[in-house]
Design a protein around this nucleic acid. Sequence first.
RNA 1: CGGGGCGUAGCGCAGCCCGGUUAGCGCGUCUGCUUUGGGAGCAGAAGGUCGGAGGUUCAAAUCCUCUCGCCCCGACCA
Length: 477
Amino acid sequence: MRDKITPRSEDYSEWYTEVIRKAELADYAPVRGCMVIRPYGYELWENVKAGLDRRFKETGHENAYFPLFVPMSFIEKEAQHVEGFAPELAVVTHGGGKKLEDPLVVRPTSETVIGYMYSQWIQSYRDLPVLINQWANVVRWELRTRLFLRTMEFLWQEGHTAHATAEEAQEETLRMLDVYTDFAVNDAAIPVIPGRKSDSEKFPGANASYSIEAMMGDRRALQSGTSHNLGQNFAKAFDIQYQDGNGAQQYCWTTSWGVSTRMVGAIIMAHGDDQGLVLPPRLAPTQVVIVPIYRKDAEQSTVMEAIEKIEAMLGQNIRLKVDRRDEYSPGWKFNEWELKGVPLRIEIGPRDIAKDQVVLARRDMPGRDGKSFVPLAGLADIVPDTLTNIQDNLLGRAIEFRDTNISEPSDYNSLRAAAAQGFARAWWCGEVACEDKIKDDTKATTRCIPLDQPGEGGNCIVCGKSAEEIAIFARAY
RNA sequence: CGGGGCGUAGCGCAGCCCGGUUAGCGCGUCUGCUUUGGGAGCAGAAGGUCGGAGGUUCAAAUCCUCUCGCCCCGACCA
C-alpha cells in the first residue's frame, strides 16, 4: 500500500495483481486458487450487481435461489455438459462422517438442478415463459487461477429461462446479450463486442453461445459475459415438458446467461493506469473524496466547517467520502485515493476558503491537467456534471483504444502479426481446422463472430474458401 | 499435470554457497514531540517455533532426506 506499483507497461500481469492487493479489492485465501473479496472490492461488485439486477427486473426476470449441491447423476444427464464439466468438478464424497451413496457435486453452474425443478413446475403453455435469475457462488477446479479473472470459486448471476418456442428462446438469448452490452458500455464504460461463439468455444450443452468480448489494456481479450441458447437439450435431459394449446406434449426451449466477478477484473484492466485503479463513476464505491488541508487547529475547524457545507450541498445522490484521518499528509492521501481509483477528488485548504473555491482533481486526467479551481457555490452542479464527463471520457477513451487496436488483415501473414498485437477481424469459413491453425500459430483464438456483419461474403483468411462471416481473433485471458 | 522460483517479524527482503555468540535490514505498527497544498522528520519501543518432520554434527536458518504450501511460465480453461 505504501510503495509505488509496478508500471503497467513494464509488467502488465504484475501490475494487475499489485493494483488489486494494494487497492484492497481482494487478497489470496489460504486455499489455492481462492480469493477473499475485501470490502472495497465487494462494494464495487455490489454496484455491478445493482446495475445488472435492475436491468434483469426491467426485462421481466425474478430472483430465486437453488442449492449449492447437485447430485452427480444430474450432471451426467446431458452428454456434452458432463464432457465439458467433468474435469473441473469438485465432488463431495463424504458427509456426516460417512461415505455418501451418491456423490454430490458443488455446482459449476446450475442448468441441471434448475432444469430438474422446471420439469416439476412447468405443466402448461400458460406457465411459460419462466424467467428466473439467481445470484450465487459456483466452483470450478481450475488449474491456473488469477484474481477475479479465474478463481476456483467465484460469484456470479446465472439466468435460466424456459420458453414455448425456439424463436422465443433465441429472442431471450439475444435480449440478455444486449442487457450485458448495455451494462458494460453504459455502467462499466467498456465498449464490448457482442457476438456468437464458434462451435469449439461454445458452452457444453448449448446449441449456440453468445458473448461480449472486451479489450483489456494489454490488448488481450476478456470474455465478460455469456448468453446461451440451450435449445431443447436440457429440456430433453430433464424432461421439461408442457402441454400446448392443442393438448400435445412439447419440450421447452431453454436459455442460460451469466456475468461473474470477472467483470471486476475487466474494469480494472480496461481503465487502470500506472497510478492504479481508475473506476467509472457509475460503479465506483466512492465517487468523490474530499481531502482537507490545514496546518493549525483554527484552520482545521474552518476547513471542516466548509466541508460540512459541501457535504450538504452535494446531498445524498453522490457517494461521497471525507478523509478525516489526521495521521496522513494530504499528499499521501492523494496517492492513496488515486490508487483506489476514486473518480473525483476535492481538495480544500485555507487558501481556497479565502477565495471561496476548491480544487477539483479528476482521476481520469492525472497530474495538473486534471486539476481545476472551481467556486464553492457551483459545486452542486459542477460535481455531478464532472462525474458524467469522466464516465463519458472513460468510455470514449476505451472505444478509441479498442478501435486503434483492431486491424483488418487481408492475408494470413498480416493476420499473424495483427493477432499478436490486438484484435484481428477477418473472414472465416467456419472450419475448426482453420481456427486451430490460427491458434497454433499465434495463440489467438476465435473470440466471437460479431453480430454486426458486413453482409456480403468473402474468402477465409486461412484456407481461402468462401466465407460468410467475419470473426474476431485475439489472445484471450 | 510438466518447467522454473520462493517459504526467515504484519509486508518486502538479506543471511544459506563456505554450519559457530543474544538471526539482521527497509517499510509498516505503538509512544512522544514537531509536522500537514503531491507518499513528513526526530527520538524511543514492541514484534521471530527461520513453512513442517526426520537426519548428520559438539553445534543447523545454513548441509542431507522427505513433506506441505504459494507464486510465475506452459498445457488446460463453459
